[in-house]
Simulated scan of single mutants.
Amino acid sequence: MKQYLHTSRKADCPVTPSQQDIGVTYVRWGKKMCPENSDIVYTGQAGGNFYTNKGGGSNYLCLPSDPENGKAYSYANDGLYGAEYEIHSDTKPSGLPASLGNKEVPCAMCRRKGKVSVLMIPGRKSCYKGWQYEYTGFLMSEHTTHNNKDFICMDGKAEPLDSRSSNENGALFYPVRAKCGSMRCPPYKDNTEVLCTVCQAGGSYYNNKGGGSNYLCLPSDPENGKAYSYVNEGLYGAEYEIHSDTKPSGLPASLGHKEVPCTVCRRKGKVSVLMIPGRKSCYRGWQSEYNGFLMSEHKSHNNKYYICMDGEAEPLDNRFSEENGALFYPVRAKCGSLR
């Protein structure tokens, strides 16, 4: 049976560069060095938008330690801050020291030569067959009461940027706790740490102001973390919000309130992937993987990414319970600033 929530299209481009020119990049959050088989592109500190800012960027950035600064600028749109750990004795995941609390977060931009795919797998600490491990850790994002940011994989041996501890705030990293309901348990476990791994070869609740802003494809065979008492329930399953009066053409209204399956796909021999909004066919030189409808959260909820939902979408199973969690709504175009 097909299980889709793939969100991309891939280029029909043969791998022509020499092997030493091929490589993938990824960020190692919480560490100043890359794993021994990877090269450092640069090292620096994690940054992002201030945790209470309603607008601005929703992703964390790895900021280089040797910036080339622009000119002084009077416009008041202060949108880039450093990032701190929000890890304390009563909130920390197993294995991380409480001494990280309120300290800034280092990061390293890494490149693994000779590889063409990199993948962060939420809910597991080991890679699938055919994939090689880079590092493991804990899924983190903003607090559910703050404004959304991406889910990232914080290294399980995270360290501080330096010895300074001044509680400057800025962008913040909180551990995430799994929540059953729309997310199937088993195989997941309620109120546990969410492990993660980054290898080379799953969304937050719709009404949560903060937490992750990206949807995740959660594996069906998770490796669950330990039970976790800190209340930051940031990882839920996802449901279709498609009904008879709101559904796009071609999708059945029976999908409404059912959970959404997904598959993470890899196309061998290709080096580029692209989701094109507003089109159902690819441009010359690109090859279609699938087409469908642009979807995201409702505009009255909190922000998430746009994704391409397969035009032949199907339910995860026959269960109908309206657990909510993360939600997928069809998107409608609005002319004006959109030409």
Rank of each mutant, 00 (worst) to 15 (best):
A253I: 04
V331L: 14
E168R: 08
P187V: 06
A313L: 04
S58D: 05
V176D: 01
P106R: 14
L251N: 05
P93H: 03
C308L: 07
L195H: 14
P97Y: 01
A238D: 01
G203P: 12
K299Y: 11
A178C: 14
G234W: 00
I276D: 07
I40P: 08
G325K: 05
G212V: 00
F173C: 09
E239Q: 06
G269E: 14
T52N: 15
S321D: 09
Y85H: 05
K226L: 15
G156S: 15
E312L: 14
E241D: 11
V116R: 14
F293S: 07
K10Y: 07
Y73N: 11
Y4A: 11
E314S: 15
G210L: 02
S321A: 07
L100P: 15
G311D: 05
Y230S: 11
G30D: 04
L294P: 07
V264F: 10
F320Q: 01
E312R: 05
S321P: 05
L195V: 08
K103F: 05
A11Q: 10
P17W: 03
G181M: 01
L255M: 06
F50L: 14
G56I: 02
P97M: 06
A313I: 00
L274I: 13
P160V: 01
Y73M: 09
P222Q: 03
T192F: 03
N148V: 00
